[in-house]
Design a protein around this nucleic acid. Structure first.
Lengths: 121, 121
DNA sequence: AAGACAGTCAACCATATGGTTGAATGACTG
DNA sequence: CAGTCATTCAACCATATGGTTGACTGTCTT
């Protein structure tokens, strides 16, 4: 369903790999925020915050609506769902119930499993 | 409840933000692999692969067992579960069923005002 | 029109990242 | 013991990243 391509996951996970950006997402979970509002909790310059926001936007994690001189940002759940879905592939490894049995089956099966990566270089 | 150990998430998501490393994880989902085996599918030096593996190990995503001169790597699901769990916080945003209603409730709840007049460009 | 305000852009800087090559460490093999 | 094999380490390089400051664009206010 949510088959995504490698470069997208790259930018998504990269964007999530920064606590400032994760914090911003968390704020956005509560509703729309302007760039200034997103920047405010951090002791970094507006320009720096702007870059973070751009990274989030670039990863598709947020969307921006320009209202006059203010930019309103909102959470865009799609990429989060993609990442969640990608991780879901590994769920059986921490859902220990059938883990061992399942691995045995996999080894026997041995064939190509669905690569969550979608395509590959 | 949802806010997790920030530095750990940093390294986890950072490790996942590289397709080479994701591919390695995928291989490891099929069973243990040596460093050489993990490196083989890529056209990079062993040293480079070693660095990737170190990043994965550093994020706790894999564990290494040294058997003589070979290092056997295995998937460590915990951090993947953490990341999955972290993303789960946002699940309601892509589980659209109640999404709109929920957002309305949230807005009322927090009195955020932010009434978007004409909300669209 | 003047000025404040929201935000981006550009230049710059330090550090991190991903890659390379060549040497070093350690463990099997003959 | 000598040599090969599996891996890491160290030095190095180019590029990316995250941060800063100052100038710039464009919008709202008065």
């Amino acid at each position: 369903m949510v088959e995504l391509q490698t470069p997208q996951l790259d930018s998504i996970f990269h964007a999530l790999g920064d606590s400032t950006r994760r914090r911003m997402l968390f704020e956005l979970a509560d509703g729309e925020r302007t760039v200034g509002q997103l920047a405010e909790p951090f002791s970094i310059s507006l320009a720096a915050a702007s870059k973070h926001i751009k990274a989030l936007e670039n990863a598709g994690l947020i969307r921006r609506e320009i209202h006059g001189r203010t930019h309103l940002c909102r959470l865009e759940p799609g990429p989060l769902a993609s990442a969640h879905n990608w991780l879901g592939f590994y769920e059986r490894f921490w859902t220990e119930r059938l883990g061992v049995l399942e691995q045995l089956l996999r080894m026997e099966d041995s064939g190509k499993t669905t690569d969550p990566e979608g395509d590959d270089s």
